[in-house]
């Protein structure tokens, strides 16, 4: 069965309280879980990148400029998996029928 057809059938049943309740429960809970679990990995990854960059700055203070720019670049890469979950969460909230 189609998703929107299923939703219409649920909403038309008994005044629609159960249908709308289930709809918002699934939508918001799904978006929250997707964003919350998806933020764990990038957080850990960015922490590793930052800690190692600090280590190397402490060892070679004259390389600070280069290391900082590379660190930002690596952090932007580590961020991308979190952004996919952000996109999925936004899709769930704004694009679902």
């Amino acid at each position: 069965m189609d998703l929107s057809a299923m939703l219409e059938k649920l909403v038309n049943m008994e005044g629609g309280a159960i249908g709308w309740g289930l709809y918002y429960l699934g939508k918001l809970l799904g978006a929250g879980i997707a964003m919350g679990l998806g933020a764990i990995g990038p957080g850990v990854g960015q922490g590793f990148v930052g800690s190692h960059a600090m280590d190397s700055i402490a060892r070679q203070p004259e390389m600070t400029g280069t290391i900082t720019s590379r660190m930002l670049l690596a952090m932007a890469f580590a961020e991308s998996t979190g952004l996919y979950s952000l996109v999925i969460a936004l899709t769930m909230i704004f694009v679902l029928p």
Partner: peptide, 13 residues
């Protein structure tokens, strides 16, 4: 896919 969604997610989010 990853190339475009990275930029899109950052700016839009």
């Amino acid at each position: 896919i990853s190339h475009s969604l990275r930029l899109f997610g950052n700016i839009m989010g």
